[in-house]
Structures are given as C-alpha cells and as structure tokens.
C-alpha cells in the first residue's frame, strides 16, 4: 500500500523502524500481560509462578467492599457522563452563537481543567465542599467528575458541530421548524457521533480518576481506583491483578462496542 500522503516512501525504510516499533509496543503492553498472566497465578506471592487458578477472580467477585466500590465507580461515571455530555452539548451550541471575543474567553475558561493540575482542582473542590458543608461521598465525587469531564466531552462534540454548515439550520427553520424541532431533528442527529465519542471519553476519564475521587471520597464514597490503591498500599496481591484484568476487560468491551456503533453509523 502506498502512504495516504502519496509520497511513495514507505515508513519501513526509516532506520530502526522495526526495533523502535517493537520497543514501543513492548513498553505499552508487557505490563498489561504481566497483570493478566499473574492474575491466574495460584501463588500468594505475586511474582512467583506456581500454577493456574481462577481463585482470585472468585475472591474478588465475592468481596463486598469491591462490589460496593465497583457500583460506586459505575454510578459516578454514568451520572457524571450524562450530566457532562448534556452540559457540553449546550456549551458547544452556545459557543457557536457567541461573538468572537466572548467565545474565546468562554472557551479558555471551559478548557482550563485540562491544564490545571488535578491535585489543585481536588484541593479546591474539597475546600469548597467543606466550606458549604456538602457531605463528602458519592454525590460530591459525581459533581466534581461532572465538572472536569465537561472539556473532554466538549472537544469531540464541538469538533463535530463546527463541521456542520450553518445554512443547514437556516434551511430547517426556513422549512418551518422551530428551535426545538431543529434541535431534535437536525442538531442532535448530526451531533450524535460527537456525543457518543464525548460520552465515552467522559465515562473512561471518570471511571479511572484517582486523585479527585480520593480527596472527595469521604465515608462510603470509595471508588474502584481508590480501593485498588488501598489494596496495594501494603503489598501487590494477586487479587489486584484479577481486579485490574476485569477493569481492562470492561474498557475493551466498552471501546469495542462504541467502535462497532461508529462503523455501523457509516
């Protein structure tokens, strides 16, 4: 195959192309293979292989604390995804209609969480919640996650929205559609791929967040990453490997589903 840019020069001719590729992939995937492999290790000492077992999976799935943490994580991720996607969609449409000066300012303010150190955001949010006496727990984490998921959800939605010719909305209005109908029948279907991508991004960002969740967890707000951190504080147990493998499996399934949806849409 020729390269899409039509230069005709194959990337494979680049010196050390093969070794560099191998090193990069090894760096990315060898740790994962370790986690997956040792999750089936029957030895209690993590790094010494003894034999094959499903025991750790049974143990992890039967653990009430882990179940609670998983439920917390999923609930937080689901609600903050829905909220942040709704807000991001509104923001994207709002930004489109703003005058240039206001738009730049608003865009910078909304995108700031991407560059603010997360630890600062976590401390600030904690201070705020304490100040207004908001009980720490699942709800406080959900609110904070919603806030920092907005820019992630907004990026693909806005990219999609900007690719749509503005006269399409005018045509819809011209043909007799009011604002709400335009939103429902034109804007939303056209944005759907962007919204799906944004939701997926927000969901995964929320699901694996540690710092903010750790600061705001309070009593009963333990999420899965926070729980795993607690587990490895003393030693890495085979249970952690099993749990991590399950988490990996879940991510792969989610991404695969969204990929299939995206292909079928085309």
């Amino acid at each position: 195959m020729t390269s899409p840019r039509g230069t005709g020069t194959s990337l494979k001719n680049f010196p050390l192309f093969g070794p560099i590729t191998a090193i990069v992939f090894a760096f990315l995937y060898v740790p994962l293979l370790f986690v997956i492999g040792y999750s089936f290790n029957s030895n209690r000492i993590v790094t010494v292989w003894k034999g094959f077992t499903f025991d750790w999976y049974v143990e992890v799935m039967g653990n009430d604390d882990i179940q609670r943490a998983v439920i917390n994580s999923l609930r937080i991720a689901a609600i903050s995804t829905i909220l942040s996607v709704i807000l991001a969609t509104g923001l994207a449409i709002g930004l489109l209609r703003m005058v240039r000066v206001g738009r730049t300012a608003a865009w910078s303010l909304i995108m700031a969480p991407l560059v603010i150190p997360e630890i600062v955001f976590a401390i600030g949010t904690l201070a705020l919640f304490v100040q207004i006496r908001f009980t720490l727990g699942v709800d406080s984490i959900t609110l904070a996650h919603t806030a920092f998921c907005i820019p992630f959800a907004l990026l693909p939605i806005r990219a999609r929205l900007r690719s749509v010719d503005l006269s399409i909305y005018e045509a819809a209005a011209d043909l007799g559609a009011n604002e709400w109908t335009i939103f429902r029948r034109i804007t939303l279907p056209l944005l759907a791929p962007g919204i799906v991508a944004g939701a997926l991004l927000a969901f995964i960002i929320s699901l694996d967040d540690f710092i903010v969740s750790y600061f705001l967890a309070g009593a009963g707000g333990t999420t899965l990453p926070v729980y795993i951190f607690g587990m490895i504080r003393n030693a890495i147990t085979p249970g952690v490997n099993a749990l991590s493998t399950l988490l990996l499996l879940a991510s792969v399934v989610i991404v695969t589903i969204s990929y299939v949806i995206a292909i079928r849409k085309r």
Binding site: S167, I168, L175, L190
Partner: peptide, 29 residues
Amino acid sequence: PVWKRRVNTVFQSYALFPHMTVAQNIAFG
C-alpha cells in the same frame, strides 16, 4: 419568525440535511 413565513429558500450551498435521504429531505418541510 422565519419558520412561520409562507416563503421558502433555495440556499447557495443547497443546505441539504446530510443525515436524511433525498425523500426525507423533501418530506421534512
């Protein structure tokens, strides 16, 4: 408002709805 006027426009860029078929485009109005 624009959606209540008994006039219709053919836009320079055509402004067809890309997510609808030709028949759905015409049916929309």
